[in-house]
Nucleic acid binder design. Structure first.
Length: 1126
DNA sequence: TTGAATAGTATTTTT
DNA sequence: TACTATTCAA
């Protein structure tokens, strides 16, 4: 048999399998065809069959005359594979491309026409840099120019706007005219007419204030559009292009160069477009140009408007509508309604939902019907609906019920009937959950044949429930790859993966991760940060070194680092000011001394070795290129061997390689890039939210599939668990600010409700992934016990079809199995204890002071690191600025006292500037300039405001030591003590935004059980003063904010202390004092956002993890208890 | 009852 | 910053 005969034979068998409507679409080879292919109707199949049919037609068409365009690379692969099974090797001669690849080919084949020979694609970072340049070039009164806050705020908005313009092929003029249209129309709109009298408007007036608001937004958009051209010029100037540019260039070339267009029109006489609903305006234009030669082009587009989830808002049906209208007379429209994937009940449920959408072709084009009919199992029996399927289905569904009933207690019975009830009714029912009897009865409900809707108590229980159900299915021999869990957000899947992992169940996920956020890379970057800091200014990065030494790969016992750190601070204390040493220098010096005496240096060997290696790397900064430096960091110092021996070796190597590649790419683009410049660029990426993406493939391919609703498109599974169907994840999810607001006149369809329709399509896509079993679930409460609503989409379905719904309550024993996951993030870590002798030396002379007290109450580990180990404090920009302000004010009042008169403001500013210059190393160049300017400004204003009122009878920077209160020693340094007659006021300066410190003044309350830090400080001072000078009448503690509020007010807050305050704080001091004495500070607070607990956990320094005490009631338990009591 | 004013809170999905 | 939820007022 010849190849052609083989192919013919094969094609005929495949063709025979097509149903009549599919054949109708395939047979009409000439002229335009639009196929609306709902989920599971054999979309790829029909494209392949069509290509086969074209090749077999009488027209002598060669494979290379056919162009098949798709949306994604994955689509190309799938298409090619299917086609090959249809027509054999000829499949490789058919041009199957993504739009981008096709355009690139056109450009590459006609380089002379495009003159783009020297261009490189632009990187995300370069785009940001260009946008910064663009923004820097804005004139003074430009609507997008900012002087305060983030001056580059508009970057992200501009970026998405320009990309949108390219994708949709919109010009600035086009948008501007739409803006005018919109603004002119506003006064006619009802929502801009005042309905009720207010201060400035009467009833019936046009709300000009609201219109002005819109106008302001629109002028911003207009200004942005006007920059589009300039941005493209900038890009060209740098020899860079966008991916989206490829399409625009080809459009332009086709439009202006007829010969070029003709060449491609001649070559591609048959054009097929897959996923037509997702093609952008620009992509669609390419198709139009290619087919524009013929009145009746041989074009075949396949798509499903109901599955459009990537298209820009408001445009989803437009392509298809325009297509239908453009060829109204000759167009063959075929709607595929035979579904070979799902059972009828699943299709019915899906239909119930999607019927709510208004923006659908079936509602816009007359005579179309899109009722999907299940042909599951009927493929081989001549397209008849197989009635016997019900028995198959119910047989297998009872398997699901069995799985559920085995381990889960189910509230069932009458309540299953939730059909037809509105959301509010459902909501009301939730309050009845608690009163419902918990039974072990199974769901043996005839309705189980329909998809199930389960309500779990909490998200946690939902995950447990799904995990248990999956476990059962796997036990019954269902393949993991036949099961999928679909959710809205990746976060859910990540969490769920933990549950499956705990149970040892196989799973499979693909997700995009940001390399820069990976722990290994963060460590590498910290290392590079340190090297840069030390290179810039010796001993400038000491606090980073402390952290770096804790990295696992050195293998240094943390106690040894603590010890070294304590020795350094001891030495510094004795050395007082001059010759302040650092961890790095201290260790280096000691290491060199070692050979000289026979005694041990007292320092850990590995520690010395690590510092030595780091020392070498610091030297390399000067001499090596960035790339070699990174290589050294990776190869030397045990980093590489640590990774290679790590259980997650493969993944870590991937991450490190990807990062290394990024560095290589950066050095290629900027051959002489310095470490500093590189780190700046990384910082810029972080700030602008740019990611270095890497696809993580976790688990194995036989595992249960974990997917987002978006990611599930085009896939199908026997069992689908559609989870997290809560309103908060769907329609009530806020979308973050995404740049500019567009005039609604831009969209052909009304913008209102469009978001909902898009979401509904996404929900629909998820539902239609299921072949036989669909379990939709949501939870009734958050982990914190707040009630959650089911998604409105569920209610919408319920109104049409009774979903078999149940409230699932898990068995305590089942929940207990997952206990290990419950507190995982909230465990309080404990570090190894220090040598007894060493601690005693460190805290032997401990005297209580405010910051130690605050540190301890915040987290005992913070106290340990700051007050016992005395880690080097980071050169913090804000803190150093605060010190400079303090310093300047201290000198101001000293001089006032000495001279008896207030010195001129210039001296205040000079003292400030002096201090700033002295500590220049704490700032970057920009920070320094900004802080200097800012400090001068606020101090001048502060001086002007208060200069007439400064009390001259006062004590400045008064040190109080060893005051005994109830046998406890207290100390403190007071900024200023003012005497007004017999009354004494203590003043403390504060820098920072006064508005943001409000809760620091709070007295103890349920939300802040220990009270605010400033409140405690005030009470502490009062307590101390009363013991120190009982004869002084300390009436108040005043917090003087040196920085004004946004409204330029200077704020002073006086705290008057009462008896209860005294008692409270005394109690706090007593507790902490005793705990410090008994060396009880090795265990952290366990709060999720605690920096110190986080430090200990991420570096795996903990020797033990403790569950938090039941101080605050654990929310899930709380709900359970309430439930039990009813 | 409903619009208007104010306070509070939280940031996605994909190519 | 922008949107939602709440409170306020006609």
């Amino acid at each position: 048999m010849t190849n052609r005969e083989k192919f013919l034979q094969h094609f005929n068998t495949e063709y025979a399998r097509l149903n009549p409507e599919q054949r109708r679409a395939v047979d009409g080879v000439e002229g335009p065809v639009m196929v609306i292919a709902g989920p599971g109707t054999g979309k790829t199949q029909i494209l392949s069959a069509r290509i086969g049919r074209i090749l077999l037609s009488d027209a002598q068409v060669e494979p290379q005359n056919i162009l098949c365009l798709t949306y994604t690379d994955a689509g190309v692969v799938a298409m090619r594979r299917r086609l090959q099974s249809f027509i054999g090797p000829d499949a490789y001669k058919v041009a199957i491309h993504t739009f981008h690849a096709f355009c690139n080919e056109v450009i590459q084949d006609n380089l002379a026409l495009f003159e783009k020979t020297a261009l490189d694609p632009i990187s995300d970072l370069e785009r940001i840099e260009l946008l910064k340049e663009l923004i820097d070039g804005f004139p003074k009164d430009h609507p997008l120019k900012r002087y305060r806050g983030d001056v580059y705020f508009e970057i992200s908005g501009l970026q998405s706007l320009f990309s949108l313009m390219k994708r949709e092929g919109w010009t600035g003029d086009h948008i501007c005219s739409k803006i005018d249209e919109y603004l002119n129309d506003l006064p006619n709109r009802d929502e801009y007419i005042c309905k009720r009298a207010t201060k400035s408007f009467k009833k019936g007036d046009v709300r000009t204030d609201k219109i002005d608001e819109q106008r302001e937004r629109m002028e911003k958009l207009r200004a942005a559009c006007n920059e589009f051209k300039k941005f493209n010029e900038l890009m060209r100037g740098r020899n860079r292009y966008d991916f989206d540019d490829m399409i625009s260039w080809v459009i332009e070339a086709f439009e202006t160069n007829e010969t070029l267009l003709r060449t491609y029109q001649e070559q591609y006489q048959y054009i097929l477009v897959d996923e037509y609903q997702d093609t952008s305006g620009a992509q669609n234009r390419i198709v139009q140009l290619l087919i524009s030669f013929w009145d009746k082009p041989n074009v075949f587009v396949v798509g499903d408007d109901d599955q459009s989830i990537y298209r820009f808002q408001g445009a989803n049906v437009e392509n298809m509508m325009a297509f239908a209208e453009g060829y109204a007379e000759d167009l063959l429209t075929v709607v595929l309604t035979s579904n070979y994937r799902s059972t009828q009940p699943i299709l019915d449920v899906s239909k119930a939902l999607i019927d709510r959408n208004e923006e659908r072709l079936v509602k816009r084009i007359g005579g179309l019907s899109k009722e999907l009919v299940s042909r599951v199992g009927g493929v081989n029996s001549e397209y008849a609906i197989v009635n016997g399927e019900e028995s198959i289905v119910s047989g297998e569904l009872s398997v699901v019920s069995g799985a559920v009933s085995g381990e889960l207690s189910v509230v069932s019975g009458e309540e299953n009937d939730e059909g037809g009830k509105s959301q509010s009714e459902i909501r009301n029912q939730k309050s009845e959950i608690n009163s419902a009897a918990v039974t072990q009865s199974e769901i043996r409900n005839p309705k189980s044949e329909t998809p199930l809707a389960l309500e779990y108590l909490t998200v946690r229980e939902e995950m447990i429930g799904v995990t248990v159900a999956i476990e059962k299915l796997l036990e019954q021999g269902v393949a993991g790859s036949d099961i999928a869990v679909i959710y809205r957000e990746n976060r859910y899947g990540e969490e769920l993966a933990n549950y499956l992992r705990l149970k040892g169940l196989p799973y499979f996920t693909k997700r995009n991760l940001n390399i820069l956020e990976q722990p290994v890379i963060r460590q590498l970057l910290t290392m590079l940060d340190y090297l840069a800091a030390e290179h810039d200014m010796p001993y400038g990065g000491d606090e980073l070194l402390f952290e770096i030494l804790h990295f696992e790969w050195w293998g240094i016992p943390p106690v040894e680092i603590a010890k070294a750190s304590m020795l350094v601070s001891e030495e510094n204390y004795q050395g007082r000011g001059q010759n302040r040493t650092s961890l790095r220098r201290y260790v280096c010096d000691r290491r060199k001394q070692a050979p000289r005496d026979l005694f041990d240096t007292g320092l850990d060997k590995k520690l010395c070795e690590a510092v030595h290696q780091v020392e070498g790397l610091i030297g390399a900064v000067r001499n090596e290129t960035l790339q070699t430096l990174l290589e050294k960091v990776i190869r030397e110092g045990g980093f590489l061997s640590h990774i290679v021996n790590h259980p997650e070796k493969a993944w870590l190597l991937q991450v490190v390689t990807a990062f290394y590649n990024h560095v290589k790419d950066e050095t290629r683009r900027h051959p002489y890039i310095t470490l500093d410049a590189f780190l700046n660029r990384i910082g810029l990426m972080r700030k602008e939210g740019l990611v270095l993406p890497l696809v993580q493939v976790a688990g194995n391919e036989k595992g249960v599939n974990l997917l987002t609703a978006h990611g599930s498109k085009g896939l199908e599974y026997e069992h689908v668990f559609f989870v997290g169907c809560n309103a908060s994840s769907w329609e009530k999810k806020r979308k973050p600010y995404s740049g500019f607001t567009f005039p609604d006149t831009l969209f052909a369809s009304n913008a209102a409700g469009n978001d909902t329709e898009e979401l509904r399509r996404l929900f629909y896509v998820a539902l239609t992934r299921a072949k036989k079993h669909l379990v939709i679930s949501y939870s009734a409460h958050t982990e914190e016990g707040k009630p959650l609503e089911p998604s409105m989409f569920l209610a919408e379905i319920n109104e049409v079809i009774d979903l078999a719904g149940s409230r699932v309550r898990l068995d305590g024993a089942v929940v207990a199995e997952f206990a290990a996951l419950q507190f995982s993030s909230r465990l309080a870590p404990e570090v190894a204890a220090l040598d007894e002798e060493l601690v005693t030396r460190a805290i032997g002379s401990f005297v209580m002071n405010v910051s130690a007290l605050n540190n301890y109450l915040r987290c005992p580990l913070e106290f340990y690191f700051r007050n016992v180990v005395r880690i080097p404090s980071p050169k913090n920009e804000a803190a150093e600025f605060g010190s400079a302000v303090h310093h300047a004010l201290e000198h101001l009042f000293h001089k006032q006292k000495e001279k008896g008169a207030l010195p001129p403001v210039s001296e205040l500013l000079a003292d400030f500037t002096w201090y700033m210059n002295r500590h220049r190393e704490s700032f970057t160049r920009e920070q320094f300039a900004r802080r200097l300017e800012y400090g001068t400004e606020i101090l001048r204003n502060y001086f002007t405001k208060y200069s007439g009122t400064f009390n001259s009878v006062n004590l400045i920077e008064h040190n109080i030591r060893n005051v005994s209160v109830d046998g406890m020693l207290l100390k403190g340094k007071l900024d200023k003590i003012e005497f007004r007659g017999k009354e004494v006021t203590i003043v403390d300066y504060k820098t920072g935004d006064p508005e943001k410190c409000k809760e620091k003044f709070a007295r103890p309350n349920p939300k802040i059980p220990a009270g605010g830090d400033y409140w405690r400080q005030a009470v502490f001072y009062k307590l101390m003063m009363d013991a120190y000078k009982p004869e002084w009448n300390t009436v108040a503690i005043e917090f003087d904010f040196i920085e004004p509020t946004k409204k330029k007010d200077y704020h002073r807050e006086q705290v008057v202390v009462n008896e209860m305050d005294i008692a409270d704080v005394k109690e706090q001091i007593r507790t902490v004092y005793d705990k410090v004495r008994s060396k009880d500070f090795y265990t952290g607070c366990g709060k999720e956002d605690c920096h110190w607990c986080g430090f200990v956990k991420t570096n795996k320094l903990a020797v033990a993890l403790h569950e938090l005490k039941e101080e605050e009631e654990e929310p899930a338990r709380f709900i359970m208890r309430v439930a039990e009591n009813h």
